[in-house]
Design a protein around this nucleic acid. Structure first.
Lengths: 138, 138
DNA sequence: TTGATTGCAAAGAATTTGCACTGGG
DNA sequence: CCCAGTGCAAATTCTTTGCAATCAA
């Protein structure tokens, strides 16, 4: 299970780390450090917010999770599935959808080449409203 | 000149506001609030950092400037030219290039439509290295 | 055992806000 | 003259860090 991922990252298998990684996998979505902290507290776990931040940062360095800086101040994290994708974020209810568009990816490479940039990373976020029932109730 | 833009925004034409808007137009680039503050201080102006933040936020609301949240914590501002564009950011020297790609724009609309999202805004930032002489010396 | 890890509280960085003073119209 | 605007310092928000106690290997 995920314990091996933690070990492979050169980190000791501790309760907080297992709890956080499990939560991210179970939840699947995009959670802020604060989200993770609150959920774990609600589940009755003993954990410190600083630990959550530290562990998430370690996981990010280890390539276990990816950090996104959407608008709104807080960073959000998700399990690194290994497959790159971009995001649609609903500005009303916070819903996040993922997508991957080959055409866009290729165009980005062409643009970087044109400007003489070697791409290290890129972030495409479309902000809008999902206009779905239940939206805005979050 | 730009004084009319300030007035049109329903704001009084004050020294700090004129100075900030002029600086952004003159500089052309992407400046953080701190940048604006420091440059004005160097130019001998008397201004408070809080005022810079307040004015930039007002200008943003008025549509005079656009705020970007590149990675690195600080927001950067640029004059709103009226024409949307995306950015290439050099992670070594901080250089910022602008581009607009019709193909990408169209694909984004198609994707939003597919997910039932009405687009409010979007941000595409390509992070890389410009690999140019002078890079990394900034 | 022993160095890695944690929790807490304090420190930081970026930005916002309260308030008395100032200045533009 | 009078309220919008300003500067300063204090407050907020998100995140990081120092340190003593604790825990995994």
């Amino acid at each position: 299970m995920e314990n091996q991922d933690i070990k492979k990252a050169g980190l000791k298998i501790t309760l907080p780390r297992v709890k956080i990684l499990t939560l991210l996998e179970k939840h699947g979505g995009h959670l802020s450090a604060e989200d993770v902290y609150k959920i774990l507290l609600e589940e009755g776990e003993e954990i410190g917010l600083a630990t959550v931040y530290r562990v998430l940062t370690q996981f990010e360095s280890a390539g276990l999770v990816v950090r996104h800086n959407f608008e709104g101040g807080q960073s959000v994290f998700e399990i690194d599935s290994g497959t790159h994708h971009d995001h649609l974020v609903c500005i009303k209810c916070g819903k996040v959808e993922e997508f991957l568009d080959t055409t866009i990816e290729k165009r980005q490479e062409a643009i970087a080449k044109k400007f003489g940039f070697s791409i290290k990373d890129h972030a495409l976020v479309i902000y809008g409203c999902c206009d779905k029932p239940g939206c805005n109730l979050d």
